[in-house]
Amino acid sequence: MLRSRWTRAAGYAAPGLVLAGAGLAHPLALAPGTAPWWTLLHVFLLPAFPLLAAAQWLMLSDAPAALRRPGRLAAFGFAAFYGGLDAVAGISAGTVVHAQHAVTPVTGAVFAIGDTLGHLGAACFLAANVLVIAEVARRASWRAAPGAVLVLAASVSFYDSHIFWPRGVLTMLAVAAGMFLLSLASETRPGQAVPVFTSS
Rank of each mutant, 00 (worst) to 15 (best):
G83E: 07
P50N: 10
G83C: 09
T116G: 14
R69S: 13
S141M: 11
G90N: 10
T39E: 15
A35S: 06
L120C: 14
G84Y: 02
A89S: 15
L85S: 10
V130T: 02
A75N: 08
L46D: 07
W37H: 13
E135P: 01
V96T: 02
C124A: 14
H119P: 09
D115W: 11
I91L: 13
A75D: 05
F49K: 02
P47F: 00
L45Y: 03
P36K: 09
G84A: 13
A148S: 15
V149F: 03
A137D: 09
V88C: 04
T39K: 08
A122M: 14
A48D: 07
R72C: 04
L126K: 06
A153K: 01
D86W: 05
W37Y: 13
L40F: 12
R68W: 00
A109E: 15
V151C: 10
G71S: 08
S141R: 15
R138A: 15
W57Y: 15
W38K: 09
A154S: 11
P47G: 07
P64V: 06
I113N: 08
W37R: 12
V130H: 05
A79D: 00
A153Y: 02
R69F: 04
G114S: 07
L117V: 01
V106E: 00
V132S: 08
A65W: 02
G114D: 03
A93V: 03
A80I: 02
H98E: 15
P146D: 14
P105F: 05
G94S: 09
L126G: 11
A74Q: 02
L117A: 14
H98K: 05
A80Y: 06
A54E: 12
I113A: 12
A148M: 10
A99F: 06
L150T: 01
R138K: 12
A99H: 05
P70M: 04
W38G: 01
A102E: 10
V43R: 08
L73S: 13
G118M: 00
A74L: 07
A134R: 09
H101M: 11
S141L: 11
A134S: 09
T104R: 06
A48C: 09
A54L: 15
R143Y: 04
L67S: 05
A48I: 07
F111G: 11
L51F: 03
G83Q: 06
A63H: 02
S155K: 03
G90K: 01
A154D: 13
